[in-house]
Amino acid sequence: MAEIENIIFDFGGVIIDIDPLLTIKALEKLGFHDIERLKTEEFYQKVIYKFEKGIDTPEVFRNKLRDYLQMNLSDQQLDDAWNALLYDIPEERIRIIEEVKKNYPVYLLSNSNEIHYDLYVRDLQLRFGYREFDELFSKAYFSFDLHLAKPHVEIYEFVIHHHRMDPEKTLFIDDRMDNIEGARRAGLKTFHLQPPQTIRHLFKNGKLKPGLAIQ
């Protein structure tokens, strides 16, 4: 295997911990009880997908969510419930990225949306002193900004070509198998991060540990 020269990190589930059940519980507290509808592909396609791709604005997303829930909730109630799934960014993982960046160009590639982004960029600013993710990473990419989303191969190819990467020498780390498979179709090397693993288990002194299950 060729030596890894670049590393691309996912965000949710890799850098920051998330739990979508917390959003479901928050909506349940607001009075929505048809919980199984929030776990369907229909909900993702009708409400979330265009928001993650930056096609729908936060205002349009909130209105779609209200219509789907059939509840007249305020913007703040919706935002608080939508953000409930996000935990704080663990300091240890920020420090690991800072160390890794000394040895490799590091990139962030995340399916995300404006409401979530506003929350965790504020966390990054207040707790770690970075104004934006481009200051922590060599470059950070978010689906809502690119109008592209994982696992479609185009989003990986965009990053590869923009930075003239050799995909055979570029490692993509994600917690979702569908995103891993999309990255492989683009020719990237991959590591499927699964609990209880965290990125701490992948690096030592800022370098990839030997013997990792890279494919």
Results as ranks from 00 to 15, higher is better:
59 E>G: 06
60 V>D: 09
60 V>Q: 04
65 L>M: 04
72 N>F: 01
75 D>H: 00
79 D>F: 01
79 D>S: 02
81 A>L: 03
82 W>C: 02
82 W>V: 10
84 A>H: 01
87 Y>E: 15
88 D>Y: 00
89 I>M: 04
90 P>E: 06
90 P>W: 00
94 I>G: 12
95 R>F: 07
97 I>D: 07
99 E>I: 06
102 K>W: 05
104 Y>E: 13
105 P>E: 13
106 V>H: 02
108 L>C: 14
109 L>M: 09
109 L>R: 02
110 S>P: 11
116 H>W: 03
117 Y>N: 09
117 Y>S: 10
120 Y>P: 10
121 V>R: 03
125 Q>F: 08
126 L>M: 12
130 Y>W: 08
130 Y>E: 08
130 Y>Q: 10
132 E>K: 02
133 F>K: 05
133 F>T: 12
133 F>M: 13
134 D>H: 01
138 S>Q: 07
139 K>I: 04
139 K>R: 11
140 A>C: 07
141 Y>I: 08
142 F>E: 06
146 L>C: 12
146 L>G: 14
147 H>P: 11
148 L>G: 12
151 P>E: 14
152 H>N: 15
152 H>R: 15
154 E>S: 15
155 I>V: 15
156 Y>V: 14
158 F>C: 08
159 V>A: 12
159 V>R: 07
161 H>L: 09
161 H>G: 05
164 R>W: 06
165 M>Y: 05
165 M>V: 07
